[in-house]
Amino acid sequence: MNRLRNEGSDLDAVDLRILRLLAQDARTSVAEIARAVRMSAPSVSERIRRLQESGTIEGYTICINPAALGLPLSAWLRIRPVPGELARVTEIVKTIPEIVSCDRVTGEDCFIAKVNVRSVADLERVIDRIIPYAMTNTAIVQSSPVAPRLPDVEA
């Protein structure tokens, strides 16, 4: 059986199919997955348990449209702390609830953060909390042609 070996990973084609099914809909039942991969439900349950224990599956979630929550404006903030303020900026971005994700990255900027807000004025208030300690560059999201998805990985 083909196995994907990468950074301690030991996934086969069935594991990848299970992951794809769960990524499409985390509420897919074990019975449905078992039928899709042509295995017994107990075998699929065991594989899912193993994927959870190995940290391959970190959790289950839902996708919520921010606009449905009254947050129609999304933006990406590139954040470059001024010298000596990296730790402070890290703590500040952790406390801003409008920042829904933030990655530390290489390059000129140290962070790329996604923000969901009601208005440009709210976006400005978020930026104003950061700019005493960092330079920012903002890109407002017009559309998202690629939804979050699994990378194309072959076993």
Rank of each mutant, 00 (worst) to 15 (best):
T138F: 02
A13K: 14
R104M: 12
I64S: 02
P42R: 07
M39H: 09
C110Y: 13
A34H: 07
L22W: 00
A23C: 03
I48M: 13
N116H: 13
D12P: 01
T28M: 15
R88H: 12
G59I: 11
R20K: 15
P81Y: 10
Q52T: 05
L4K: 08
S54Y: 04
I130S: 05
P151R: 14
V93I: 15
S29K: 11
I130P: 02
S29M: 08
S119Y: 08
P132E: 04
I92E: 02
D152N: 10
C110S: 13
P151H: 07
V82S: 04
I33V: 15
D10S: 12
V141P: 01
I18C: 04
Y133W: 15
Q52M: 07
I112Y: 06
T56A: 13
R129K: 14
L86S: 00
I112S: 07
D109C: 06
P81W: 15
Q142D: 12
A26T: 02
Q24Y: 05
S74A: 11
V117M: 06
V126L: 08
I140W: 04
S101L: 09
R149L: 02
S43L: 11
A87M: 10
D25T: 01
S74G: 06
V44N: 06
R38E: 15
V141G: 00
V126H: 08
A67P: 01
R129A: 03
V44L: 09
T106A: 10
S43R: 15
E46G: 03
V117P: 05
C102P: 01
R118G: 03
I64T: 08
R88V: 14
E58N: 02
V153L: 15
D128A: 15
K114R: 15
E85V: 00
N137T: 12
N116T: 06
G70T: 09
S9Q: 13
E32P: 00
D103Y: 12
L22I: 10
I48K: 06
T90F: 09
L4C: 02
P66E: 05
A121R: 15
I131W: 03
A41M: 05
D10I: 07
A23Q: 11
V37F: 14
C110G: 00
S40Y: 01
L11Y: 01
G55P: 10
S40G: 13
I96R: 08
V37S: 03
I18W: 01
A67T: 11
S9F: 14
L19Y: 00
A67D: 10
R3K: 14
C102L: 10
I79L: 09
R88L: 12
E53N: 13
R80I: 05
E85Y: 14
E58L: 14
A67Y: 00
V105A: 02
A34N: 08
V37N: 11
D103R: 14
R5Q: 09
R38M: 08
L21D: 06
R5S: 02
R129V: 00
V115A: 03
A87H: 11
I48V: 13
V153A: 06
P42W: 01
E32R: 11
E98W: 03
L19G: 06
